[in-house]
């Protein structure tokens, strides 16, 4: 069976928490539970006048890649609502092609 995943272009993830709230709404998770969580890395000095501050959303065990939505032909809710437009949902082998073209990307295959 084809494995699907989420590609995240974390060069442009702004850390806006939209994916978390989209997931909570879709799954009615409420406080303390989420299928995806934004992580903050930095700010960290990486050069004389250079600082890095990155955000990387990571799916949790509660992520089922929005199987119900996807079966209805829709995008996963986090992917659809992402403010910065940095998430893609597709078969992993297709996502890898994006990854070859773009630095600061990561693919998650939660299941």
């Amino acid at each position: 069976m084809t494995r699907y995943g989420l590609l995240i272009d974390y060069e442009f993830c702004t850390g806006c928490h939209t994916c978390e709230m989209a997931c909570k709404q879709e799954n009615d998770f409420g406080v303390g539970k989420t299928g995806i969580k934004v992580n903050e890395i930095g700010p960290m000095q990486t050069g004389p006048d250079k600082w890095a501050l990155d955000y990387v959303p990571v799916p949790t065990d509660l992520c089922d890649l929005c199987s119900k939505r996807v079966s209805e032909g829709k995008k996963p809710s986090c992917v659809m609502h992402c403010q910065a437009g940095v998430m893609k949902y597709a078969p992993v082998n297709e996502l890898v092609k994006f990854m070859e073209l773009k630095a600061k990307t990561v693919i998650f295959a939660p299941r």
């Binding site: 806006c16 709230m21 989209a22 709404q25 609502h81 403010q83």
Partner: peptide, 11 residues
Amino acid sequence: SEGRLCLRCLA
């Protein structure tokens, strides 16, 4: 908005 929404609208 191209279908995007922030967390406040989603809430």
